[in-house]
Design a protein around this nucleic acid. Structure first.
Length: 391
DNA sequence: TCTGGGGTCCTAGGACCC
DNA sequence: TCTGGGGTCCTAGGACCC
């Protein structure tokens, strides 16, 4: 039996969720994104796209192009809630669901056919249920492999369904521009253009060795496979998390050490909390620093004892930032925990003669309070106004 | 026009070990 | 005295995706 893979993609997801819960927005351009001075568009419905508004566009430009649009701040909690409910619909069909992000997933329905019928019938019923239960539309691509299924859904957007039969793959694939290949962005497309490669068919026809010279070993092999219509990757329901991080872009560049310190404390608190909730600790602490001129660097430090306590994370992150950014106005700072290990498998042994510092216990208690009373209920003392206490 | 926030993966160089 | 090759870990940067 040949395999059958679905790629399901919510249409303009954040904007669609907002329209579903605010029906008065139905017939207006809806733009969801950061409302601050440096915000960008996260999602735009199709009415807004007609004005040239799209994801990643600076909000300032969006407002100029579409002055009468409805502009909304993203509500991540609501989008996650709808996302979970939609993923449950998928899991009613098959346990082989691989979420790619909050708004799209692969489904391997090879084994679901006996129960639910042909893939196209499964795709239709998923689209109907999502619309009926959540008031939003999605697009489904159906094919034998992940990449072709994803490409099919991209081409069928919005509110569509497209099946690519195995014997139709190359006719569908080869005329498309190289930028449709997964992993080809602006830079790689430019490299390929220098070799005279413009379509997917051009890439498929080129010997891999020549491709390697242009884009490197791994990318060359990957692109050549995809361009030839081959994609052996399985749908993988559970993927290990590799890192947990948070970052913030300031409304105006920050030079004040106290403001920077407070931001790092908040980020550390957020990241450590998420790590503990997920049952992880990390051996590598990484910071990201973006200067006023947009130059961006990253610095990291690996330690022997994995970290999941905000106090420790903050101490390391703050040191990394001050060592590398002292005196420069900063546009952005970020904190990330890498090299994750499951924290229940950790043998914690306080160093000899060193009293267990107790922060972990304190923060675990705080986790419990936040669980019961909300995330704003308990905050580090130095996040409270006025002015920071000493540390 | 002026560039978010969450991630993943790859490359390359250097340290260190065998 | 000059010079090896492979493997692993760490760090930094960059491309890419949604």
């Amino acid at each position: 039996m040949t395999s059958a893979i679905l790629h399901v993609d919510m249409d303009a997801f954040f904007a669609s969720v907002e329209m579903a819960r605010h029906p008065e927005l139905r017939h207006r351009p809806v733009i969801v994104g950061g409302l601050g001075p440096r915000g960008v568009v996260s999602a735009a419905n199709y009415a807004a796209r007609a004005f040239g508004v799209h994801s990643a566009l600076p909000m300032a430009i969006a407002r100029r192009r579409c002055p009468r649009g409805a502009y909304l701040q993203p509500d991540g909690a609501e989008y996650r809630r709808v996302s979970k409910a939609v993923m449950r619909i998928f899991r009613d069909v098959t346990p082989l669901v691989e979420p790619l992000s909050v708004d799209e997933a692969f489904l391997d329905v090879t084994g679901a056919r006996r129960l639910f019928g042909e893939p196209v019938a499964i795709a239709r019923s998923i689209r109907e249920r999502v619309a009926a239960e959540h008031g939003i539309t999605c697009t489904v691509g159906v094919a034998q492999t992940k990449f072709i299924a994803k490409l099919a859904s991209t081409k069928a957007k919005p509110d569509g369904l497209l099946v690519i039969e195995p014997d139709g793959v190359l006719d569908f694939l080869h005329p498309l521009p190289v930028s449709d290949l997964w992993g080809v962005g602006e830079r790689t497309a430019a490299s390929l253009a220098r070799l005279g490669l413009h379509t997917v068919g051009d890439v498929a026809a080129l010997p891999v060795a020549r491709l390697k010279a242009a884009v490197g070993q791994a990318a060359a092999l990957h692109l050549h496979e995809l361009a030839s219509g081959r994609d052996a990757r399985a749908v993988t329901p559970h993927r290990e998390e590799k890192s947990i991080g948070a970052e913030v872009t300031f409304d105006v560049d920050v030079s004040d050490p106290a403001v920077l310190r407070k931001a790092l404390l908040e980020l550390s608190d957020k990241v450590a909390g998420r790590a503990r909730r997920a049952g992880y600790a990390g051996r590598t602490v990484a910071v990201k620093i973006r200067f006023g001129d947009f130059r961006t660097i990253s610095r990291s430090r690996t330690v022997h004892e994995p970290v999941d306590v905000a106090r420790d994370l903050f101490t390391m992150a703050h040191a990394l930032v001050t060592e590398n950014a002292e005196g420069h106005p900063l546009r952005l700072v970020g904190v990330r925990l890498e090299g994750l290990v499951e924290s229940d498998r950790l043998a914690r042994q306080p160093a000899l003669g060193e009293p267990e510092h107790g922060w972990r216990q304190a923060e675990t208690t705080v986790d419990g309070l936040r669980e019961r009373f909300g995330s704003k209920a308990v905050r580090p003392a130095s996040l409270l106004d006025p002015a920071p206490g000493d540390l």
